[in-house]
Design a protein around this nucleic acid. Sequence first.
DNA 1: CGAGGACTTGAAAGCATTCAACTGAGGTGG
DNA 2: CCACCTCAGTTGAATGCTTTCAAGTCCTCG
Lengths: 254, 254
Amino acid sequence: MTVFKGDMSTTRDAETNLAIWLRRIDPAGRLTASARDALGSSVGRVRPFQARETLFHEGDAPSDAVLVLEGIAARVKEQPSGGRAIVALLLPGELCNGGLQLFRHLEHSLRALTDGRAARIATATLQRLEAQHPELHAALLRAAAQDDALAREWIVNLEVRSAQGRVAHLLCELFVRLQALGLAAGAACAVPLLQQDIGDATGLSAVHVNRVLQALRRAGVVRLGRGALEILNFPRLADMAAFRPDYLELLEAV
Amino acid sequence: MTVFKGDMSTTRDAETNLAIWLRRIDPAGRLTASARDALGSSVGRVRPFQARETLFHEGDAPSDAVLVLEGIAARVKEQPSGGRAIVALLLPGELCNGGLQLFRHLEHSLRALTDGRAARIATATLQRLEAQHPELHAALLRAAAQDDALAREWIVNLEVRSAQGRVAHLLCELFVRLQALGLAAGAACAVPLLQQDIGDATGLSAVHVNRVLQALRRAGVVRLGRGALEILNFPRLADMAAFRPDYLELLEAV
DNA sequence: CGAGGACTTGAAAGCATTCAACTGAGGTGG
DNA sequence: CCACCTCAGTTGAATGCTTTCAAGTCCTCG
């Protein structure tokens, strides 16, 4: 198993890395081979990261984009009060631009919530790529539009739902997104988030997240623990969350 | 005053409409004359709207983009529970794309919160414009990046701040944005929002918004009423809101 | 085996919601 | 011109959800 691991994994991983990205931006497999190749060639150095590592930091100068290949990262805004507000979760295949050279300073940090791997992609490379391949431009635009829709749904989540609804909604969303990326096995998927992270993403205290998760478990709807998310009764969970996957629409087909 | 009003206002308004848009996407006046002309020619029929009017509706097929010229509109997500969640406020000069032809259905509505005027701009026209004028593409991209940053700040607002902090933050943001658009007169500006609207944008009940506004008024920090917002003590208001205008940076200079 | 981090539990306090009634301003029709 | 109607804003009391604090358990790793 371990023999030649270094050598063999180098090229195989390059393909795997691209495949993950493609599952996110081109789930229907519509891109031409040349566009796919160009995309693959833009994936630069892949670097592993550890949970709690800061991939880039709020206030820094704009940086390259970061493509998450494995694990979960979060767009985070640190608060003067000491807490961290999670503004978006980045799953494998998702791209976080580093300010696009548009802002003077980055207005949020990128923080790893779990161990994983990420690639840096220079903003200039991305721009060249989009200019040369209109279909890539369209694909990336679509992905960005989805991220926007996701952010808006988070706003709704925070504005109108109870603690239980918020957590249930986040779990629904995570499951559907991971499933679309091919990262779910039946009704289960790996979600190695801390209860504190869930709290930072839902505006709840970690203590209360704990109680809500217990209630959901006792209701036989969903289990989250030991790094795994198991959906026991999706319709009921979706109902408790008032979950309408419309806003994720593009993640599946098109 | 009223003589020839119709005729005279037609051309003058066309210039005014463009000026409002330019203040938003090109505050520094860097665009070339030809780009400005192209932009102006894309502004189609201008239509007045009334408070509470729905400009386009959630679930409909993707539509043209809407440019708000006067008044305040909101991206709204209607809730099964009957309420409305406000996901973004659109001030004069701000553009709301109609789904970009990317989503099958619009995932939110566009609703007028006050009386005003808006122009429809065909998505195809916008795309052609951006293709022909790279500088316009850049300007619109920048505006879109600001909208994203705004959405993320709203998420933070909902996640970490108290009721008072949320309302104070929204008022800070509104004032700074309106000021950047040249719509503030000293420390005052027109903000004809209902307390219910503030509540829908901050995830609070209208009743509680009322109490918070009273507290802010009693503290001598800010007054909101009769359609006007008066900032009495901005430093203190910003402090109560933990307001850091970094995320609005691009609205001012560049 | 010890240490640290994540998770769990209980009790008390606080903040925001809900319900319901009332005030006030603006506009309409008699 | 006034009566009336409506809608936004205001107020009070009661309820309840969520936080905070503090202690304790469980698990993993060194």
